[in-house]
């Protein structure tokens, strides 16, 4: 059973949960994701893995309530079970296969937007465990949307925070901080940007200009997560790729973000209708 061992309401729409999923924790690596399902007629929801405890078999997930399925998930309490949890899915981040000595020569910059903090954390943690330094920019609309800050500080070389409204850290967006750090003389060999598509798009435009190779993590609509449905098509360097088997991480300078944004809206009408119906049913 996929028992929930901890529930934390991070902010208005964001939730963190610890879930028993030993088949995932036994093998998962940074960059991979999982799929959860709630209820016998539930939808399969892909989520990034925020943290994992291999010994206890517990995986940490973070999600934002955006529709019916995530709203149902947010109703679950400690001790409840997900109907299904499956993974790990997708390719691990490229650095896990690289020579540690080579990695140690590199300066990594992570830029995470909103719930993108979740998938960035295990990457920075993995690098720290292997003696590789990484700076992290945590960007959000406002202070209450920043989470996992202490954990991130414990594994990152430096953590920089920006908020759109200036309620915490520097007022501005992630790319403002990227420019500031580079202007101050910081040198970065690789940037990893994870967050909303629009944020990854603009971060990639900025790093391209600054000449920093960039990796992004795509989270398109998908069903099975193993390559079978083909819903998760993304175009990278003019080629159609399946995010679930070829990704989810791709060269940020080559992803067609405008297409990804259009595809993300594919079921918006149907999803909105279902969400409205669900909310009405709660009243």
């Amino acid at each position: 059973m996929y028992r929930i061992t901890k529930v934390e309401h991070l902010s208005e729409k964001n939730w963190l949960m610890n879930v028993e999923a030993p088949y995932i924790t036994r093998s998962c690596l940074p960059g991979q994701f999982l799929i959860v399902r709630t209820g016998e007629l539930g939808e399969r929801i892909p989520l990034t893995i925020c943290d994992y405890d291999r010994e206890k078999g517990i995986v940490t997930i973070v999600f934002q309530v955006v529709g019916e399925s995530t709203a149902k998930m947010s109703q679950l309490k400690e001790g409840d079970c997900f109907t299904d949890v499956v993974g790990p899915l997708g390719q691990p981040s490229e650095f896990v296969k690289e020579d540690i000595e080579v990695l140690k020569q590199r300066n990594y910059l992570f830029v995470c937007g909103g719930v993108g903090i979740a998938p960035v954390y295990p990457q920075v943690k993995w690098l720290a465990e292997h003696g590789v330094k990484a700076d992290v920019i945590m960007a959000a609309r406002s202070k209450d949307l920043i989470f996992y800050e202490q954990q991130m500080r414990s594994v990152a070389a430096n953590v920089y925070i920006t908020t759109d409204d200036g309620s915490y850290g520097m007022k501005g967006v992630g790319t403002d901080m990227v420019r500031k750090l580079v202007a101050e003389g910081h040198h970065y060999d690789v940037c990893v940007a994870i967050g909303p598509i629009i944020m990854m798009k603009f971060t990639s435009l900025t790093t391209k200009e600054l000449g920093i190779p960039t990796i992004v993590s795509m989270n398109p609509i998908m069903i099975d997560g193993t390559g079978m449905c083909g819903a998760c098509r993304v175009v990278v360097d003019g080629q159609v790729k399946f995010a679930c088997v070829d990704g989810p991480e791709f060269d940020g300078h080559k992803v067609d973000y405008d297409l990804a944004m259009k595809r993300a809206a594919l079921y918006r009408k149907e999803e909105a209708e279902k969400f409205e119906r669900y909310k009405a049913s709660l009243q």
């Binding site: 390559g227 449905c229 083909g230």
Partner: peptide
């Protein structure tokens, strides 16, 4: 395995699905 597509122009438009999906 992975569903095949035709590789023709416009195939990534919204409303094009694999039969599998």
């Amino acid at each position: 395995g992975l569903p095949r597509f035709m590789g023709i122009p416009g195939e990534t438009a919204n409303g094009v699905f694999s039969a599998n999906e």
